[in-house]
């Protein structure tokens, strides 16, 4: 009988499917280790059977699960679809607003018009005989002159 029995790791290596050479050689000659290996394999087989049993479900269960997954995917698609459309709509509205708003409130032409008006105003002022601010005084002076000439005519008439 071989006294150097397999260690736990060596035995695990055998059942996992990666046995060392020593383990393989030892198993060929050791009845005790073979028994232990066989017991371990039987326990692992038991696990495998129970594993399969625990995963068993009726067909209705799988159908429901599929339906639930599809429903969640559909919901996600709808949300994404709505999000895309609302973003596109918002972008269109924004662009439209910017497009139609800009000609009315373009600042450059306004400045240009003001400059033009100022130039015209200056030109008109230059053409005037008197500056615009002195126009009332000029009217007053003209009126005084007119009144003075009328008085002179009247005085001449009285003396003749």
């Amino acid at each position: 009988m071989n006294e150097n029995h397999l260690t736990d790791d060596e035995l695990a290596g055998v059942v996992v499917g990666a046995p060392s050479r020593r383990a393989s050689d030892h198993l060929a000659s050791c009845e005790s280790c073979r028994t232990e290996e066989s017991r371990m394999r039987s326990e692992l087989k038991g696990f495998s059977e129970e594993y399969a049993r625990q995963g068993e479900r009726p067909e209705v269960f799988w159908a429901k699960q599929r339906a639930a997954v599809h429903a969640r995917i559909e919901r996600r698609r709808t949300v994404l679809w709505r999000l895309t459309w609302s973003t596109a709509a918002a972008a269109t509205i924004m662009l439209g607003y910017l497009h139609f708003r800009s000609p009315a409130s373009q600042p450059a032409p306004v400045v240009q018009d003001a400059d033009q008006a100022l130039l015209l105003d200056v030109e008109r002022s230059l053409r005037r005989p008197v500056p615009a601010a002195l126009e009332p005084a000029m009217i007053l002076a003209a009126e005084i002159d007119r009144m003075a000439s009328i008085e002179q005519v009247n005085e001449k008439g009285e003396t003749q």
Partner: peptide, 15 residues
């Protein structure tokens, strides 16, 4: 994918 793999995925997660 779902019908093909759901059983296996569920089994692993159950374990």
């Amino acid at each position: 994918l779902v019908p093909e793999h759901q059983r296996r995925i569920h089994r692993v997660l159950m374990s």
